[in-house]
């Protein structure tokens, strides 16, 4: 008798009930809410979504996205998820910065020691540092003196202060280039486009003296003249120094300067993704293993048989 009753009750528990509610759906906390509370949740959700949409639209509306041209995405060799920077290009980019850009732009947060094992050997970096003169002191007589640079010295700035820089450049301040790829929308794509994008102003646009036309610069009128021309410098590794080659190399160099951890970061990503995908699969198996007891249990009411 008991066996028959047990079978009957069991089959009743196993059958999907006619109103379509299966047992597991009782785990949901939403079921217990009243209609009013559910409606309240919907209202709160749509308010949050609407506010996010509004914030996004307002943010877009204040961006100067009128006539300025956005830089296209270039196929940088460091674009990939695990792709390092091209260090030969960094070295050439340093040559371009030193011979062209550094006439007006400082890179005051970069020291010569940072070049070691990135683009230069230690001896080369020492030579580069020794080629500049640094004011040091005071000495025993209380006087400042000049000495050749050391590895710990930062890159020299072309102007002593911002006012001097503006005065020498028609009122325009040449920005410090250390973190420039991080500080501009479009990063190295923008820099490359800017450096190679100088054109004559289109009809109807007249520029003040000392301003130049560049469609990639917000507003179009830029205080910097075109700096890169074919064969302007000579690369020490013999690469033909076309204007676009120099722009590409200096953009890579500045990308490294802004993100010196770039290569290590991508190597870490490789390690972390490998390790964590393994750990996730282990913990998924472990969870299934631990829950298998709960998931497969059946609670049976067995009436006491006479």
């Amino acid at each position: 008798m008991a066996g028959v009753a047990g079978k009957f009750v069991k089959s009743g528990l196993l059958r999907v009930q006619s109103n379509g509610i299966i047992q597991q759906s009782h785990l949901s906390t939403l079921r217990e809410l009243s209609v009013g509370k559910k409606a309240g949740l919907v209202v709160v959700g749509s308010l949050i979504g609407g506010a996010a949409g509004l914030a996004y639209t307002l943010d877009q509306s204040v961006k100067a996205s009128g006539l300025d041209l956005h830089a296209p995405h270039f196929p940088w060799s460091h674009n990939g998820m695990f792709s390092s920077l091209d260090h030969a290009s960094i070295r050439r980019g340093y040559e371009v910065y030193k011979q062209v850009c550094s006439a007006c732009h400082s890179m005051k947060y970069l020291a010569y020691r940072n070049l070691i094992d990135v683009s230069h050997t230690e001896e080369e970096a020492k030579e580069e540092a020794a080629s500049i003169q640094v004011t040091d002191g005071p000495n025993e007589e209380g006087l400042m003196f000049q000495r050749p640079g050391k590895l710990s010295d930062r890159f020299p700035s072309p102007y002593p202060n911002e006012e001097a820089a503006r005065n020498a450049n028609n009122g325009a301040l040449p920005p410090d280039l250390t973190y420039i790829t991080a500080a501009r929308h479009g990063g190295e794509d923008y820099l490359f486009s800017l450096l190679t994008g100088y054109t004559d102003p289109p009809g109807g646009i007249t520029l003040r003296d000392g301003l130049y036309y560049n469609p990639y610069f917000p507003g179009g009128a830029i205080g910097m003249a075109q700096a890169l021309y074919n064969e302007l410098i000579e690369y020490s590794d013999g690469t033909p120094a076309t204007a676009s080659q120099m722009a590409k190399d200096v953009a890579t160099f500045l990308k490294w300067a802004a993100e010196p951890e770039h290569d290590d970061r991508k190597k870490m990503a490789l390690k972390a993704l490998m390790l964590f995908s393994f750990l996730i699969s282990v913990s998924y198996y472990w969870k299934r293993h631990k829950w298998s007891v709960l998931k497969t249990r059946k609670i049976v009411y067995k009436p006491k048989s006479e």
């Binding site: 695990f82 792709s83 390092s84 920077l85 094992d117 991508k266 190597k267 490789l270």
Partner: peptide, 10 residues
């Protein structure tokens, strides 16, 4: 990593 980035590293 150095196989992926062969030729580009220092």
């Amino acid at each position: 990593y150095s196989e992926i980035n062969k030729g580009k590293l220092w």
